[in-house]
Design a binder for these strands. Structure first.
Length: 553
RNA sequence: UGGCUUAUGGUGUAAUGGUAACACAGCGGUUUUUGGUGCCGUUAUUCCAGGUUCGAGCCCUGGUAAGCCAACCA
C-alpha cells in the first residue's frame, strides 16, 4: 500500500496560529485557555471548545490553562468546579495551570483604579433603568450619564467606598468612559464593576464588588500571557472592548478569536435551558443519560474517544451549524464495535422448549467475546432445555426474506445449535404461548457436521440460568430537530417518551459487570451498567442501537 | 432604521484563481454463525444578479437570507 495520506487541511484558527508561530510572534510561544464559568455542567458543545484549545496546544507544542471564570458569586459554586475538572480528565485532557479569575480580583481592582486615574472610568449613581435608557438602541445613539464628568479624585474615593461596602447593592457602578454613540453597544460606557453583597465560593466575603465579564476575561488572559483566546461567536462584538481595555491598561496584548458554537439536532445546548430541564424535572439530573452533558453522555455509555473523534470531524468554523446527531452516534458505534464485549439478552421473551433435549441437561457452549478483537477470548454459556428468544424472532406467517423462525423453519441459536420449529403453542386469544422445537445434535457451533445451512442466527438466554435485569432505553429528548428555533417555548417540544424502562433476561455473565464495562447486546445495541447497577439489581443503559437492516413490516 | 458575522449535496467539512472532494445520512450489491461489522458501488452541492479574468465556489460591486449586539450574566 503506497497511499499517500492527504494532509488534513487547517481550520481558520490553526491558520492563524501557524502564521503567528511562523512570524515569531511571542517568540513562538503558544498558550490557550479553557474558561468555563462554574455555574453548570460541561456539555458536548464545551467539548468542541476543549478539543480546539487543548488540541491546538498539543499540536503546536504549547499549553492550555484551565481558568474558571468566576466573577459572579451569585450563580457559581464549587460543585461545578469539581464536575468540570472531572469531565475534563475523563475526556483525556490535562491542563498546564489551574487558574481562577477570582485570583485576580486584587489586580483587577488596581486596573480599575488605573482607568479612573486616566480619566477613563467613572462611578455612576444612575439606576439600572436610567442606564438602560441612556444606552440608546442599536439604531439610535445613547446619551451621556449626568455622572460622567466626576473628577478623578471623586471617582477614586467613591470606588473605594464601593469596595468598602459603604453603598447599597445596585446603588452605584463603575463604568468605563468610552463612547455613548458608538455603533457597538458594548462601547457605550459599559459597566465594569458592580456591588454584590454575596459570598464568593473562593474569596468568601472579602469583596462586595465584583468585575463584569468584560473587565475580567481579557485581563485574566493578559495576566496569564494567553496568546490565543478562543471563544464563541456571540463574543465577536466584545472584541473591540477586549482590545480597548488591554490597550488602555498597557498590558500584554492577548488576542481574541471566535468560532461557531456547536448545535446538535433534537437537543438544546445552552446551560440556561439545560438547567431548566433539570430544575423542572424533565430529566432526573445533570447526568441524566438523555442530557447532552459530558456526565450524561458518560453515563449513557459514550466513550471519550467517540466524543473527541466527533469534535475532530465537525471542524471549526464561523458559520452557524446544526449537526445531525447521527454523526455522533456513528462515532460511538465505531468505537464500541471494536471494544465492546458481545453478550446475549432477550427483551421480549418467548419461551422455547427443546423437546429432544433431556430434562436437566446442561450443554456448555463457547462464545467469542468480540469477533473484532482476537485477543478478547471466549466465555461459556450454558444451553438448556428451556430458553427464551425474542418474540420478534418468530412469526407464524412470515413475510418474504424473513430469516428467523417460523413453523417448520430452522435458525441457528448463536454459538449453540440449529433448531427447528415443530409447533407453536397458542394461548386462547391466539397469541403465541411458547414454541416446541427440536435441536440438531450434529450442528453444534464450531463443530457443525450437519451440512445444514441456515440464514438466520438469533440470540437466546437460558430460561433456567438467565437473570433478570432492568434496561433503560433512551430516545431523543425533543420531538423536533431544532427546538430552540421553533415557535414558543422550547419545552413544548419535549419528547415525553424519551425514557423507557423494561425488564430483560440476560446471560449470567452480566452479573459481574462493572462500571465502565461496555457491552454489545447482540443484534440489539450497545449497553453499559448504569450508576445504579449492583450485583443484586442489574441496571443497564442503552447507549445506541445497532444500525438496522431488515425491518419487519 | 445602525453595527458586526456568515452563506458549498439532506447534514457537516474541504478545495487558498485551474477537473467541486471527504465524512455522515440515504439507496443498491457483496461478505458474514450479529439482517451488526468489513468491502464495493451509487444518488445529490457552490444563495441571487452583474463585473474582473483565458479561467471564479474563491476576487470586486449590488442584492437576498440567517445569526449576534440595547443583562449591575458569561
Amino acid at each position: 500500500m503506497s497511499e499517500t495520506i492527504k494532509e488534513r487541511s487547517l481550520n481558520f484558527v490553526e491558520e492563524i496560529v501557524e502564521a503567528d508561530l511562523k512570524s515569531g510572534k511571542h517568540n513562538g510561544r503558544l498558550l490557550t485557555r479553557f474558561p468555563p464559568e462554574p455555574n453548570g455542567y460541561l456539555h458536548i458543545g464545551h467539548a468542541k471548545s476543549i478539543c480546539l484549545n487543548f488540541g491546538l496546544a498539543q499540536k503546536y507544542g504549547g499549553g492550555t490553562n484551565l481558568r474558571f471564570d468566576d466573577t459572579n458569586p451569585v450563580t457559581e459554586d464549587t460543585e461545578y468546579v469539581d464536575s468540570i475538572k472531572n469531565d475534563l480528565r475523563w475526556l483525556g485532557f490535562s491542563w498546564t495551570n489551574e487558574m481562577y479569575a477570582s485570583d485576580y480580583f486584587d489586580q483587577l481592582f488596581k486596573y480599575a483604579k488605573k482607568l479612573i486615574t486616566k480619566g477613563l472610568a467613572y462611578v455612576d449613581d444612575s439606576s439600572a433603568e436610567e442606564m438602560a435608557t441612556q444606552k440608546g438602541t442599536p439604531n439610535a445613539p445613547g446619551d451621556e450619564s449626568p455622572y460622567r464628568s466626576r473628577t478623578v479624585e471623586e471617582n477614586l474615593s467613591l470606588f473605594d467606598g464601593m469596595a468598602n461596602g459603604d453603598f447599597a447593592e445596585g446603588s452605584r457602578v463603575l463604568r468605563a468612559k468610552i463612547d455613548m454613540s458608538s455603533s457597538n453597544m458594548l462601547m457605550r460606557d459599559p459597566i465594569i464593576y458592580r456591588i454584590k453583597f454575596a459570598e464568593h465560593h473562593r474569596t468568601g466575603n472579602k469583596w462586595c464588588i465584583y468585575p463584569m465579564y468584560d473587565f475580567a476575561h481579557g485581563q485574566s488572559d493578559s495576566i496569564e500571557g494567553i496568546t490565543h483566546s478562543i471563544c464563541t461567536l456571540e463574543f465577536v462584538s466584545h472584541r473591540e472592548l477586549y482590545d480597548w481595555f488591554l490597550e488602555q491598561l498597557e498590558i500584554f496584548p492577548s488576542k481574541q478569536y471566535e468560532f461557531a458554537r456547536l448545535n446538535l439536532t433534537y437537543t438544546v445546548m445552552s446551560k440556561r435551558k439545560l438547567l431548566q430541564l433539570v430544575n423542572e424535572g424533565h430529566v432526573n439530573s445533570w447526568d441524566d443519560p438523555r442530557m447532552p452533558t459530558i456526565s450524561g453522555m458518560r453515563r449513557r455509555g459514550y466513550t471519550p474517544k467517540s466524543i473527541v473523534d466527533f469534535c475532530d470531524r465537525i471542524g471549526i468554523q464561523k458559520r452557524d451549524n446544526l449537526i445531525d446527531v447521527s454523526l455522533l452516534e456513528f462515532f460511538v458505534r465505531e468505537d464500541l464495535n471494536k471494544t465492546s464485549t458481545r453478550v446475549m439478552a432477550v427483551f421480549e421473551p418467548l419461551k422455547v422448549v427443546i423437546t429432544n433435549l433431556p430434562d436437566g441437561v446442561v450443554e456448555p457452549c463457547s462464545l467469542e467475546n468480540n469477533p473484532e478483537d482476537l485477543e478478547s477470548g471466549h466465555r461459556t454459556v450454558n444451553f438448556t432445555k428451556e430458553i427464551y428468544i425474542e418474540q420478534g424472532d418468530f412469526m407464524k406467517e412470515p413475510p418474504a426474506k424473513y430469516f428467523r423462525l417460523s413453523p417448520g423453519k430452522m435458525v441457528r441459536l448463536k454459538g449453540a445449535y440449529i433448531i427447528q420449529c415443530d409447533e407453536a403453542i397458542e394461548n386462547e386469544d391466539g397469541s403465541i404461548k411458547e414454541l416446541h422445537c427440536s435441536y440438531i445434535p450434529s450442528s453444534k457451533s464450531g463443530a457443525d457436521e450437519s451440512g445444514i445451512k441456515v440464514k438466520g442466527v438469533i440470540q437466546w438466554v437460558s430460561a433456567t440460568e438467565g437473570i433478570e435485569s432492568e434496561i433503560r432505553i433512551y430516545d431523543r429528548l425533543f420531538k423536533v430537530e431544532d427546538p430552540s428555533s421553533e415557535e414558543g417555548d422550547f419545552k413544548e417540544y419535549i419528547n415525553e417518551n424519551s425514557l423507557e424502562v423494561l425488564t430483560a433476561y440476560v446471560e449470567p455473565s452480566l452479573k459481574d459487570a462493572k462500571p465502565g464495562d461496555r457491552y454489545q447486546f447482540m443484534r440489539n445495541g450497545y449497553f453499559v451498567p448504569d450508576t445504579d447497577f449492583s450485583s443484586k439489581k442489574l441496571v443497564f443503559n442503552k447507549t445506541v442501537g445497532l444500525k438496522e437492516g431488515f425491518k419487519v413490516g
